[in-house]
Every structure is written in structure tokens, then in C-alpha cells.
Computed example of a mutant assay.
Amino acid sequence: MTTTTSFDALGAQLQQMREGLLAQLREQRGGAVGRAEAAAEARTLATGDWAQDDAQRDLTFALEEREAAELNAIDAALQRIASGEYGQCSDCGVDITPARLQANPVALRCIQCQGVWERNHGEAPPPKM
């Protein structure tokens, strides 16, 4: 089992990741207007390629969804630390190896269960921070 001291270090790392992501989001949004709204406004002013504007808007939405998923994964990991469930596989309950948690502090599953999950769902895991 991973020690409390290493959980403290991983918790601090998660908190730094969270703060960095929030700062990035604030910078990208440029204030109160979100990127999607800014793109829509630019589109109405543009006289050029509407297809390019639509593609840019779709990309912006996809990036915002990814950033929200990253933030949710970090918050969930911090909640697991607070509740004492951090470092336990959500599927089988075994301890997740310290190396895996160090590489991916938001990991929900041990490496074996993650492989099964990916095969069953046909998709990659949530993004690493």
C-alpha cells in the first residue's frame, strides 16, 4: 500500500495540476466571455470561410469538454484522498501501484482493470494531466 506521505505528495501534485488548469482556462477565456462565444462573435464579423469558422468552433467545444473532464478527474482524485479511497482500484479494490499513481495521479483503476475497461469500452482512458 502507498504511504500517507506519498499520498500527501500526490495530493499536492493534484492541487498544483488543478490550479494550473484553472489558470489556463481563465487565460484562454480572456475574462467573462468564453472561447465559444468569442468564436461565434468573430464568425458574425468574418466575411471569409464559414466552414473554417465552424471547424474552429467545434474544436473549441471539444477542447472545453476535455478541460472539463480533466478538472473533474482531478477533483474526483482529491475527493478520494479526503475519503481515504485514493489508491484503491475502483473495479477490484486492490491497491494501485505507486508507480502508476505517480505517472497518472487521477488513475481510477489498477493496470489490469484499466486494460479490461479499455477493451470493453473500445476507448482510451481519460487524459493524463
Rank of each mutant, 00 (worst) to 15 (best):
I96T: 12
R109Q: 03
T97F: 05
N104Y: 03
P105D: 08
C92D: 14
A107M: 05
P105M: 04
H121E: 06
V106Y: 00
N104R: 11
R100L: 09
D95R: 12
V116P: 01
A107L: 04
P98L: 13
R109P: 04
D91L: 10
I111C: 00
E118A: 12
N104I: 06
T97Y: 11
A107E: 07
Q112P: 07
V106A: 08
Q112M: 03
D95A: 15
Q102A: 15
A103Y: 00
A103L: 12
H121I: 01
A107W: 02
N120E: 14
E118F: 12
P105F: 08
G122P: 00
T97A: 15
A99T: 14
G93C: 14
V94H: 13
R119T: 14
N120P: 00
C113D: 15
I111S: 09
A107F: 03
D91S: 13
G115S: 11
G93E: 09
N120F: 00
C110Q: 10
Q114L: 05
C92N: 12
Q112A: 15
N104H: 03
H121A: 10
Q114N: 05
L101H: 07
R119M: 12
C113H: 05
R119K: 15
Q114D: 02
L101K: 07
H121P: 00
E118M: 10
D91K: 06
D91H: 09
D91G: 02
D95S: 14
Q114A: 13
P98N: 10
H121N: 14
E118C: 06
P105K: 01
G93D: 15
V94M: 13
C110H: 10
D91R: 10
R109V: 01
Q112R: 12
Q112W: 01
T97S: 15
G115Q: 08
W117L: 02
Q102G: 11
I96C: 09
D95Q: 09
G122F: 01
R119S: 13
L108W: 07
E118N: 05
E118G: 05
T97Q: 14
T97G: 15
V94T: 15
D95L: 08
N104E: 02
Q114H: 05
R119L: 14
Q112D: 15
C110M: 11
R100F: 02
A103C: 04
E118W: 07
G122A: 07
C110K: 08
A103T: 01
H121M: 07
L108T: 08
D91W: 01
G93S: 15
I111E: 13
G115N: 09
H121Y: 07
R119N: 13
N120K: 13
G122Q: 08
C110D: 12
Q114F: 05
Q102H: 07
V116N: 06
L101D: 04
C110V: 10
P98T: 14
H121V: 06
V116I: 14
I111G: 01
L101V: 09
Q114E: 11
R100W: 04
D91T: 10
W117N: 02
W117D: 02
A103G: 11
A103V: 03
A99Q: 15
Q112G: 08
Q102N: 10
C92F: 08
R100E: 07
D95P: 09
G122T: 00
G115I: 04
L101E: 09
G115M: 07
E118R: 04
D91C: 04
Q112F: 02
G122D: 08
T97E: 11
A107S: 13
H121L: 08
I96H: 05
W117R: 01
D95G: 10
G115K: 03
P98M: 05
R119V: 13
